[in-house]
Simulated assay, not measured.
Amino acid sequence: MFTGIIETLGEVIDVVNEGTNRHYTIKSAISNELKIDQSVAHNGVCLTVVALTADTHTVTAIEETLQKTNLNELEKGKRVNLERCMQMNGRLDGHIVQGHVDQTAVCVKRAVLDGSWEYRFKYDAEKGNVTVEKGSVCVNGISLTVVGSKDDEFSVFIIPYTFEHTNLQEVNVGDTVNIEFDIIGKYVARLIGK
Rank of each mutant, 00 (worst) to 15 (best):
E73A: 03
K127P: 03
K194Y: 15
N72A: 11
R22T: 15
K194W: 14
C46M: 05
I183N: 02
A61H: 05
C46G: 02
K127E: 04
Q38I: 09
A54P: 06
A125C: 04
S31P: 09
T48Q: 05
E63N: 10
L71W: 08
N140G: 02
I192E: 11
W117A: 00
Q67E: 14
G148K: 10
D152H: 12
N72M: 09
V97D: 02
G185H: 13
D14Y: 04
V97K: 02
K76C: 07
S155G: 05
T166Q: 05
V49Q: 06
N167H: 05
I183T: 14
Y24P: 01
A125M: 06
R79N: 06
I13A: 01
G4K: 07
A105R: 00
F163W: 15
N140P: 05
I192F: 15
V97Q: 03
E118I: 00
W117P: 00
V49G: 07
G94A: 00
T69W: 10
V130S: 08
Y119N: 05
N21I: 09
L191H: 14
I26E: 06
S149A: 15
I62K: 03
D182C: 09
S116F: 13
E133H: 07
Q38S: 11
A125P: 14
L168A: 05
Y161Q: 08
A54I: 11
V137T: 11
I159N: 07
H165M: 12
T176V: 14
K122T: 08
G115Y: 14
Q169E: 13
I184G: 03
S143T: 06
T145Y: 14
F163R: 06
T48A: 04
L168F: 14
L34W: 12
L168G: 01
I96W: 13
K186T: 11
R120V: 15
F163Y: 15
G141M: 07
R79G: 00
N140R: 03
G19K: 12
E83T: 02
T20L: 12
L34K: 06
V139W: 09
Q87V: 01
G193T: 13
I192V: 15
A51C: 00
C138N: 12
R190E: 14
N70Q: 08
Q67M: 10
E75Y: 10
D55W: 13
V40F: 09
G193Q: 15
P160N: 08
N32G: 14
L191E: 10
S136M: 10
I142Y: 09
I36N: 10
S155A: 14
G148V: 08
H100N: 03
T60S: 08
K76P: 02
N129E: 07
F154Q: 06
T69E: 02
K27Y: 10
A111E: 15
I179S: 00
D93G: 01
V188R: 06
R110G: 00
E7C: 02
G148Y: 12
